[in-house]
């Protein structure tokens, strides 16, 4: 064992845990469905002999996943689209709302971070608006925008703006005065200073905010799509629940997790690129 690196040992543990978990799940489900022996007529009439509509075992989910993933982009009408299409819709909404939020939050965060007057003036609004659950905006958004698609994007926009705004402001305000003085003694203008000194100095904090935001946006899109309906992974989960197709529900829950992980990993990569050691 000592010959293996820490990472390898951790990987072995992960795989072992996965198999143990799946095994326990599989066993507990099949133990549930075993129901043989003599049944009274009454029991037969109430359906006791048939398999219970229980939680599906992992083997069924795996089969389902194989089916869905081998043909992810099929489109057989409004209620039957491939998982790839559904996730695609969700990602499209998340990214649209998210980038609109970034376009506003990052410059505004710069302003708030640089000017304490702007910070004090805007802070009360931020403090009141920030704790509002993004879904609480939904009725208002639907009424004003009158378009469910755009409303979902608005909800993503409103939930991802705050971490980016606050982290940008925090990062910009925390830029070491020495670095700003370097810019000043080199006679850099306001824009040059912002781009060559303040932005790289604050970048790790800003990207951390962006990473938190994308995580929240991905959490919120599922709920928003459950409400809005039509397309998207959130709608898919709810639709399969209505179909009582628990296998698909479990499969889509896993997919939500995987996509969330990939989005986070992408920002993790960006974070490493802008990181620096003082």
């Amino acid at each position: 064992m000592e010959l293996l690196s820490e990472n390898k040992r951790a990987a072995i543990w992960s795989i072992a845990l996965l198999f143990v978990g799946l095994f326990v799940w599989e066993i507990s489900i099949s133990a549930q469905t075993i129901n043989t022996g003599e049944l009274t007529e009454y029991e037969l009439l109430t359906g006791a002999g048939t398999a219970k509509a229980g939680v599906p075992p992992p083997s069924e989910v795996a089969v389902k996943a194989w089916q869905e993933l081998s043909n992810p982009f099929y489109d057989a009408g409004p209620n039957d689209k491939g998982i790839g299409i559904q996730i695609g819709y969700s990602i499209y909404r998340v990214l649209t709302g998210y980038f609109l939020a970034a376009i506003i939050a990052i410059p505004l965060g710069f302003l708030i971070g640089m000017s304490s007057v702007a910070y004090k003036a805007l802070n009360p609004f931020i403090q009141v608006l920030r704790p509002i659950s993004p879904l609480a905006w939904m009725p208002l958004a639907l009424f004003i925008i009158q378009d469910s698609e755009a409303s979902a994007i608005f909800v993503i926009f409103i939930c991802s703006i705050w971490p980016m705004l606050l982290n940008t402001a925090f990062g910009v305000a925390g830029v070491r005065i020495d670095w700003v003085n370097v810019a000043r003694t080199h006679e850099l203008g306001a824009f040059k200073t912002a781009f060559t000194v303040v932005l790289p100095a604050a970048a790790p904090t800003i990207v951390t905010g962006m990473r938190i935001s994308i995580g929240i946006a991905w959490l919120v899109i599922v709920a928003a799509e459950m409400l809005v309906g039509g397309t998207g992974i959130g709608y898919y989960v709810w639709n399969e629940w209505n179909n009582l197709d628990l296998t698909s529900v479990i499969f889509s829950i896993l997919m939500i997790g995987v996509v969330g992980m990939l989005l986070d990993a992408a920002f993790g990569l960006l974070q490493r690129r802008v990181a620096y050691v003082e």
């Binding site: 020495d178 003085n181 100095a201 050691v277």
Partner: peptide, 8 residues
């Protein structure tokens, strides 16, 4: 005094 190099 503290060098003030840009660390990135």
């Amino acid at each position: 005094q503290n060098y003030s190099l840009l660390p990135w």
